[in-house]
Write a protein that binds this DNA or RNA. Sequence first.
DNA 1: TGCTGAATTTATAACGTTTTAAATGGCCAG
DNA 2: CTGGCCATTTAAAACGTTATAAATTCAGCA
Lengths: 354, 354
Amino acid sequence: MADHSKPAHTEDSGSAARRGKPTLRTIAEITGLAVTTVSRALSDAPQISLETRKRVREIANEIGYSPDRAAQRLKTGRTNVIGVLLDPHEEILGYGTSIMSGIAKALQGTAYHLIVMPNFLNKTNVEAVHYITRNAMADGLIFSRTEPLDPRVRLLSDLGFPFVTHGRTELSTPHPYVDYDNFTFSYQATKRLIAKGRRKPALISGPADFTFAGHLQHGFMTAVREAGCAYEILSGIDLDSPAGAIRDRVRQRYAESDPPDSFMCGGEVCALATITGMSDCGLTLGREYDIVAKQTSHLLSAIQPQVETIYEDLTATGEDMGRVLLQKIGGESDVSKLQLLLCPQIPSSFGMAG
Amino acid sequence: MADHSKPAHTEDSGSAARRGKPTLRTIAEITGLAVTTVSRALSDAPQISLETRKRVREIANEIGYSPDRAAQRLKTGRTNVIGVLLDPHEEILGYGTSIMSGIAKALQGTAYHLIVMPNFLNKTNVEAVHYITRNAMADGLIFSRTEPLDPRVRLLSDLGFPFVTHGRTELSTPHPYVDYDNFTFSYQATKRLIAKGRRKPALISGPADFTFAGHLQHGFMTAVREAGCAYEILSGIDLDSPAGAIRDRVRQRYAESDPPDSFMCGGEVCALATITGMSDCGLTLGREYDIVAKQTSHLLSAIQPQVETIYEDLTATGEDMGRVLLQKIGGESDVSKLQLLLCPQIPSSFGMAG
DNA sequence: TGCTGAATTTATAACGTTTTAAATGGCCAG
DNA sequence: CTGGCCATTTAAAACGTTATAAATTCAGCA
């Protein structure tokens, strides 16, 4: 069927003989169609006849064609790249890996690639973002450690550059985010401590810069106010502190008067460090004190099952962020559809004693 | 200085007025040079006069020019991308994040970007590698979990595609790698247990598939043979096992006869799980048994300081891998220069009692 | 017959870079 | 002068794709 009646291109040029990746031209030569037609057919343009579309697609599969990303990018200006700002000092167990696995899962089957943009490259995070947008290095951005007045969010919103944050802001212009409901987590966790008979829970909160720290604190405060019990927000340390620092601080606190009798920990490392610090003081978990913690891996529950935990699935979070970002890039303008607040799944055991 | 005596290009076309990123053409128009000359000047070609090179570079800086990666990639075939095969189920604390931070650090300042290629995308790792090379999606590849006869290494070697592995193989054709000397680690760790008076160390080794498991075992065996003491290689679990499984297995083992009196653990999770399992049996670390473990984060030493540890710096490893890969891509053909065996730093305390 | 419009296909020009081969101008030997 | 050689600069083509505008075919209809 494929005849050679068509006059050759100006010259012999490379022709399909050039050993290498098949291109649109290869398909064009095989089918006798023009390159343009092949391009359109593959993108399922309605102006190309159904029969042609089918034929082209078959040939493409047969010879293992896959479009050249560089050429597409050059022509369209779209990079087909999603960037994730990696923070090197995440104290949360498996944070980076889980989030990335999740994003990658969402991107699977799409034309998008995931590229890691460490933000220690440039001095501040904002500068990194500036650089990325200025040089059009990605079509969308994902990042975490969101601050209430996050300058990155401001910048990207102004530029109209697609992004999703892990965590909310308090900025007036709404933007896509995926967040864990840390208020509910903290509220339920603290209530659980009180339900167990504890009368002075202590909170080890996130670094004050970040929005989620406020949510943790709010949930905690709501629970203690409802119960009308004493409380404490442990100063000097936060969830970013190294385990050793948390341990020391807990021990030191117990050398002082009127110590707390239970802990609300936002992370596993924090819980483990707290237990060690308490153990240094001769206190036993479940007897002299209790802990409820957020769980992001399977370590804590295997090592210290007495710690009651509420799970946050970071891989799922990553997947959600990927999906949301793709929708945003795809033109979804209803921001409310791009804001996900993931509900903590409270273990049934929590309800029984509460 | 910049005069308009030069005839305009065929038409007014976009000209530099087109609001957007500056390109070579922008610089050409400013300086009055040809695009080719500008390109050459920026790449420091010796055929361009020194004065011109300097002038071009100055203008480029001034207007904030940075080359379009897509265009470069299209023209040269080089992607300026380094791919890292991410394994979603790394039980080693902070593995993914550390390695990536390290690689990113090595890539900083170069034209290379780091892109994450999760290998659950395609069925097997080899298929992922196949896909990546076939579609020229990167200039080099980094991956871990190396097997003695790793099929990925085979494939990439055959293709002449640049790569570095984290871990060695037993293949006859040498290839670039960065590896931790797990033999020495295991040997020293085990000797330390024996020096502390233990007479039946147990090894919890890596998954049998991976090369490093053999190294761990070899070091362990060398130490126990030298001492002529009893030993055990704990079956049914390995460093990839979830903490809960390790804990259960340890407990179960102690219900049987003739249990070990010490443990060589290749990871922190493993050590913590072991301690918990032993504690379930009423046994106390440092009294009834000892543990030496490999440390990759600061968690273990803060939580369980009685566990003696030898540190493996994964960020440094990532950085080394990045550097080695760049050298390989840069044309370094002396493979011996591209093989790094990182020495465990044995704590001074180890020597004292040994 | 010739015109109109719909359906399908096509040629051409771009995107920004690098590569190849050629041009320009200055200088010196013949 | 002519020719040749050097140093420097240049024009044109190419990489593989898509967007724009134009061409081709064919049916329907006046």
